[in-house]
Write a protein that binds this DNA or RNA. Structure first.
Lengths: 187, 187
DNA sequence: TTTCCCGGTTAGCGAGCGCTAACTTGATCG
DNA sequence: CGATCAAGTTAGCGCTCGCTAACCGGGAAA
């Protein structure tokens, strides 16, 4: 859990990318944000692309692993769904910059990295799809997938949502998400 | 309603910006997308920044005007809310690129443009806030605003959502949005 | 003590960018 | 018919960016 220099750089870069976009941030900006200057980054990452690649693959892995674990540990499908919602809400609230970059700069990844991230994302979505289908019988796969993406959008609105305290917002987003799913699955 | 060259350029640029981000698209790319090459754009726009500015202010105006009109024309608050949801869903489904750019490249606007867009956005959100408060009594302003942003996120997931047909997706997103609001306002 | 290397530094290259300048052309209009 | 002008073209300037090269200091290892 030692916060190494790599991690420091990744965190600072995430913040900058979230604010200005990948192409809107220079190597020098990232360096300055951690107190070193410019090309020193190349002692830690092979390229700016590689930095983005590591950022997005690691967050995608965290989501997949965390989501899978929480869903698997639940006793019932309904509880699994609540756990997934709580997990994703928590993640988004505590990593707004990563969430922003994750959905904004996917297109700026190198092909290999993009393929890997896409695969991880797809598998994470699949966890949601299966959990939704288990919790609400009679929902076909495409509908469940569309619901999952919609709920991601809802919860990922966190970065634009700075009007409530963190716990209040967490509670609200979870309730909204579960209410949304409940409404369509019953009807 | 004549689709002038300006509009053609704006549409093509929106598509490109949505895919690669503002800084990831060159003047030459935009020109090529409409069959002219590079600097010819400056016969229609004073700068690349101005192009983005016009794109985002015009979409913000459309949202504000359309939303206000639909909400005002409704007979009851509950119907006004349904109208707002239907309007925004329709807009997002028919302009996925604009929606993407709108929330991604706001930070790349010139200060004056950004101020204008932000003001328009704020007023649009205010329409939602008042409608939500009218439809559900006892919801305080901050909560209503947070709900509005969350619902925008939900509906704006459209660009990532290509698993259902357009009408099916429209129906689903509307139901999800209204279900979400209903769940938190009642509880 | 000497050696080595890790993690910094500054200088600068080469490419790509937004944009301007200068020129061309085809349509419109007095 | 000649002038004007809108809407293109290509050439190229100047700046910024990602990245490399070359150098350096300090701490651990031999």
């Amino acid at each position: 859990m030692t916060a190494t220099r790599r991690d420091e750089i990744l965190a600072a870069a995430a913040e900058l990318f979230a604010r200005h976009g990948f192409h809107g941030v220079g190597i020098d900006d990232i360096g300055a944000a951690v107190g070193i200057s410019g090309p020193a980054l190349y002692r830690h990452f092979s390229s700016k692309d590689a930095l983005l690649g590591e950022m997005l693959t690691s967050i995608s892995k965290d989501l997949l692993e965390g989501g899978s674990a929480r869903a698997a540990a639940a006793a019932t499908p309904a509880e699994a769904l609540r756990e997934l919602v709580a997990f994703h809400t928590d993640f988004a609230l505590n990593n707004p910059a990563l969430i922003t970059v994750h959905e904004r700069d996917l297109g700026n990844l190198r092909d290999a990295d993009r393929r890997e991230v896409r695969t991880l994302q797809r598998r994470y979505v699949e966890v949601w799809v299966q959990t939704i289908q288990a919790a609400y019988e009679g929902v076909d796969e495409e509908r469940a997938r569309a619901c999952a993406h919609a709920v991601f959008g809802l919860i990922n609105s966190t970065p634009h949502n700075r009007y409530l305290s963190k716990p209040e917002l967490a509670r609200l987003l979870s309730d909204l998400a579960l209410g949304a799913l409940d409404a369509v699955a019953v009807g």
